[in-house]
């Protein structure tokens, strides 16, 4: 059997995995009856439907021709998501200002061009602006610095 529509085929696999996981974890919740549905009822039913839909999608991917799955571009993916995670870590221990610099500089590395001076200027403006807007203007409770 040849995969003729990789997008559909793998999307189907993804749905089967999610549906299977739902049923697997829902097994530990009481199923109940139609009159008194337990916490496991709804997720199990949904999981079953999702598996069925996934199977159908995958099979269609074997029958009909379609688009290939695009290549994963790791660079923007890792820099963008990494910079956000870095922000989350830095915010609690080092404060908002450091976290902003970390996010801006690292995410900018994921772009097409990187001009350090420009990026630092941007980070500075955003840091000052954010502290003013969020800490003072909106009175949100962010730690500003590590102190």
């Amino acid at each position: 059997m040849k995969i003729r529509d990789p997008q559909d085929f793998w999307a189907g696999v993804m749905f089967i995995v999610f549906g299977g996981a739902a049923i697997f974890f829902a097994r530990s919740y009481a199923f109940g009856s139609a009159a008194k549905m337990g916490p496991g009822y709804f997720p199990s039913v949904l999981g079953g439907i999702l598996i069925a839909l996934g199977l159908f999608t995958s099979l269609r991917g074997l029958v009909f021709a379609g688009q290939p799955v695009g290549r994963f571009n790791w660079k923007p993916l890792l820099y963008v998501l990494g910079s956000i995670m870095l922000f989350a870590f830095a915010l609690q221990s080092l404060g908002l200002v450091v976290a902003i610099f970390a996010l801006i500089v690292v995410s900018a590395l994921g772009g097409h061009e990187f001009k350090l001076k420009e990026v630092l200027a941007l980070a500075l403006i955003l840091a000052v602006g954010s502290v003013a807007i969020f800490n003072y203007g909106l009175q949100l409770q962010f730690p500003i610095g590590p102190w």
Partner: peptide, 17 residues
Amino acid sequence: SLFRILLAALATLAAAS
């Protein structure tokens, strides 16, 4: 222009505070 926008936002929010 970005800076100007931030400045405008800042001014209004300062009023809010």
